[in-house]
């Protein structure tokens, strides 16, 4: 038996029928076809499924969809505005901070939440803010470099 729920995804009000046991990740990927949010470990360990709920980074693979009823969810698809990449996306491109790209959506959302609350973080604060996002390609240095570059305003349009 499915249950009706509404939530705002990337600024758009969505009303959908969900299974009570469905996770937010499943609803985003399978019902709303927003496949930018990745299923990595599916156990809340790797951070690939990170999205923002009311501006706070949350792990969508362990969050039940019905728990975000009426809340505001932002995914990687909503980060660019009017066709222009977010300054974090610009910085990731310029610094070579993405390789295979699987962790990148989660990393970008964690970084966006960090900068929203702390516009000029220290390197240590960047590392702490991104500690929940595992990357198996880059060794993390370029990711941290890119977040610092974005915080300095490089790549601002």
């Amino acid at each position: 038996m499915k249950v009706m729920m509404s939530l705002t995804v990337n600024g758009k009000l969505e009303t959908i029928a969900v299974r009570p046991g469905a996770t937010l990740l499943e609803v985003l990927r399978e019902d709303l076809r927003l496949t930018g949010t990745k299923r990595g470990c599916d156990h809340g360990d790797c951070g690939a499924c990170t999205v923002l709920v009311d501006g706070e980074p949350r792990l969508s693979c362990i969050t039940l969809a019905l728990q975000v009823r009426g809340r505001r969810v932002d995914t990687i698809e909503g980060l660019a505005r009017e066709g222009y990449p977010h300054r974090l996306q610009e910085a990731f491109d310029r610094e070579g901070a993405a390789q295979c790209g699987f962790c990148t959506p989660g990393v970008l959302l964690s970084a966006a939440a960090l900068l929203a609350g702390n516009p000029h973080p220290t390197r240590e604060e960047v590392r702490d803010g991104l500690a929940g996002n595992l990357c198996r390609c880059t060794g993390f240095q370029k990711i941290v470099d890119a977040v610092e570059a974005a915080a300095r305003g490089e790549g601002d349009r």
Partner: peptide, 9 residues
């Protein structure tokens, strides 16, 4: 504890 997104949840 864990990481920032885990601590929010």
């Amino acid at each position: 504890v864990g990481s920032v997104p885990l601590r929010f949840g």
